[in-house]
Design a protein around this nucleic acid. Sequence first.
DNA 1: CGTTTTCAATAACGTATGTTACATTGCACA
DNA 2: TGTGCAATGTAACATACGTTATTGAAAACG
Lengths: 255, 255
Amino acid sequence: MSLASLVRKLEQFVRLSPVDHIILNRASTERVRHFAPRVDIVREGEKPKDVHLILSGWAYRYKQLEDGRRQVVSFFLPGDICDVNVFILREMDHSIGTITAVSIADLSREFFDKVAAGHPRIVTAFWWETLVNAAIQREWTMSLGQRTALERIAHLLCEIWLRLRLAGLTQGDSCDFPLTQGDLADATGLSKVHVNRTLQELRAEGLIVLKGKTLSVPNLDRLMRAGLFNPNYLHMDHEGRQLDAVGTRSDVVAG
Amino acid sequence: MSLASLVRKLEQFVRLSPVDHIILNRASTERVRHFAPRVDIVREGEKPKDVHLILSGWAYRYKQLEDGRRQVVSFFLPGDICDVNVFILREMDHSIGTITAVSIADLSREFFDKVAAGHPRIVTAFWWETLVNAAIQREWTMSLGQRTALERIAHLLCEIWLRLRLAGLTQGDSCDFPLTQGDLADATGLSKVHVNRTLQELRAEGLIVLKGKTLSVPNLDRLMRAGLFNPNYLHMDHEGRQLDAVGTRSDVVAG
DNA sequence: CGTTTTCAATAACGTATGTTACATTGCACA
DNA sequence: TGTGCAATGTAACATACGTTATTGAAAACG
């Protein structure tokens, strides 16, 4: 319902001017659409005319093979932008679907042209968003290729946790967690049964508390170690700006 | 040794002006460096000051876990650009190493600023490169998460084949192929032994001929079907511009 | 031009994870 | 406030792929 998460996230990285705030605010209230849970926002093969900003709710990007095998290739959390500059490509090579109810703002090509022309900090911030998303995709490649089931799930939970925290969406050591075990399976390349087994294991070791749609992480450092998680790929600091606004640097690296 | 592959690739997508050619030509001859096979160009944790353009040779991007597990997350072929706009991030979250001997041109921040200011076609072309690389990374996520060993390897070979062809680096139905089975293992998340088994299988079915450092693909369509390969993610066409310059569209999709 | 190292090939055996099936819980909605 | 359907949990069994080990064939090298 708001762009607070986007602004909070971007401001970890660049300081936006009052005018920048106004620009973002206007763009994110002009054309807003609402979606129910578990529906598609965009489908493979379509040619979207706008970039989408997630104002609230969770969504994912997924691909599917002809025989139905399905892979979630990324998650969108509030404040995330779907593909800056899809304007250039002819058509979508994947689909985007909602997990929860979702509100999105459509950002037009004209908006980006205007930003490019006169708002360099926003440009930099959007570049940061784009590059971090690319880094996340590489890290998923690493996870799927090399990490064990337990490491994969622990790693994914750490990633989601830190991204939520950056967006200001954690409360103490817990957060909303609307993903089903089936979603986790599609994202980690594991079967639902094995995801279940592995979550039990994480629970048994006291690394997570996952019940209903709430996740608690009593000791982030331990979960990170279990997932061989190195937060460097999230690039949460920049040119001296540390993570102090959301927690100390050691808080991120060591728990 | 030349930027022919880059220009050929970009021109599939946008028509560059004579001045654009001059700009690219100057940038790619000013600061050239040469590397031996199997050495690192950039290491995780470093802060490179330039973007690298591969003029000749093959390289890869890889990540490594503390215990040595290693994942190749992408390949660089001649004409590829490593991370447009690394300027923004604080430090590398992965390493880049050579496979063969490699020549690279270092592209400075000033070069990109100049391009951004006065050469919109090059900007568009670089955006295309960036977006296609992101799409490739997503497709790798799909492969590692959902495809079987045989599908994974077949898919990877199709991808490399098409990328080489776009860069003008295939001869008839064969091409240079300097990857070892160990490289393929690191890229596909399989063991070397299983890569070997799987290559035998592909050979036995007549899908590939792989000997020495040369790969032949007698029937691309059959290999694509074996890898459940859909070329849409490479976005090789744009606004009416088809692949006719390198082969017919049906040649890519179905033959 | 022999020597060393890397790469490819093959076999025997082990295991992490998948599959199928069904029971249980929980939540949406009538 | 049941009632139905989705989500979670559990067990028994199957398998694709990993591991270790060894051999032969190319390259690299001094």
